[in-house]
Design a protein around this nucleic acid. Structure first.
Lengths: 172, 172
DNA sequence: GATTTGGGACAGTCATGTTGACATATCTTG
DNA sequence: CAAGATATGTCAACATGACTGTCCCAAATC
């Protein structure tokens, strides 16, 4: 723990409480806004998913395959941080609905490279549009420098050894 | 929809694609960092929850009761945005483990006002410490102005009619 | 007195995660 | 080339935390 231990409730208001108290409130505010912001962002896509008979797990798979066409199964597994069995069920469903297809890896023939079919691309685009609506208006309200701060705090939340994985998604 | 519809993949690189393309990448970066940042933040508490035989639903209930001692069940329901039945099970478990207790409402005797027992306070404090570790170091790395931006983008993600609920948690 | 509201409880279902074991194809290395 | 490591898929069994729908009681409000 890099910080002294502030207990939560009924602190008896010591004379010098103010900075520590404010800090805890700032931490709690971050926790809460992150929780509600995240929940709000994904809520928009849920109606589409329901209509299609899918859940959030399907959405996450579609999202990352859209983002990185040709993604091997193992990479997707590491991104989602779930077990092979959980992912397997989701991928089987997406493939049986012809939203995702596989190709044998070129350099490593053990790999199955995932990509969206045209139907999958269309569904992912409609899901993305839902998220985008909220995110774009939040960016617009907050302004560019706020967006930079938003990113940098979130990056700081990700353990150092996981950051490369996230950065690997970036545009290129 | 407040924005034109940018489709995701295989856009045939029109001459003026660059600004739109960059914007989509910025939106996707926000989506991804929010997903990974949120996941990273809560992952720390999971080990404690496992050890106690609880799940994230219990954590969320403990968190909000700690944050607003004397919270009525209905308010907690609105914060968590789950059904009464789902919350009921969680509260029953927390009460049977003597972490949460109820009192009859003073102004409205139908209400059940929730608060943590000393044991509940201790557990919540240990869970909070896990979240705090990550959040405090992310704040420290990013700096105060980034934190402000972080908050303001997240607030922008929350639908206007829900913001009052979130703000009602603030310190006071 | 009638209706609404706050809370609780029942049964049943579903989505999504888990563990552990095992199979197959392919790549890498001694 | 043989042996081991890796990428993937698949099975059974299970846990959690959501859901819907229905019903109930007590207290507040009209």
């Amino acid at each position: 723990m890099t910080v002294p231990n502030p207990t939560t409730a009924s602190r008896p208001l010591p004379p010098t409480a103010s900075p520590l108290f404010l800090r805890e409130d700032e931490i709690r505010r971050g926790i809460e806004l992150l929780y509600f912001g995240y929940s709000s962002m994904i809520r928009g896509a849920d109606a589409i998913l329901d209509r299609e008979g899918f859940g959030r797990a399907h959405h996450r798979a579609l999202y990352f395959i859209a983002r990185r066409p040709g993604l091997p199964v193992g990479d997707l597994l590491r991104l989602l941080a779930i077990t092979k069995q959980s992912l397997g069920r989701v991928l089987t469903e997406l493939q049986s609905r012809s939203l995702v297809e596989q190709a044998i890896g070129t350099t490593d023939r053990r790999q199955r490279l995932l990509r969206l079919t045209p139907a999958g691309t269309a569904l992912e685009a409609s899901l993305f549009a839902e998220l985008e609506t909220g995110m774009a208006s939040a960016y617009g309200e907050a302004g560019q420098s706020a967006v930079t701060g938003f990113w940098s705090v979130l990056i700081g939340l990700i353990p150092a050894q996981d950051r490369a994985l996230v950065e690997s998604l970036r545009q290129g």
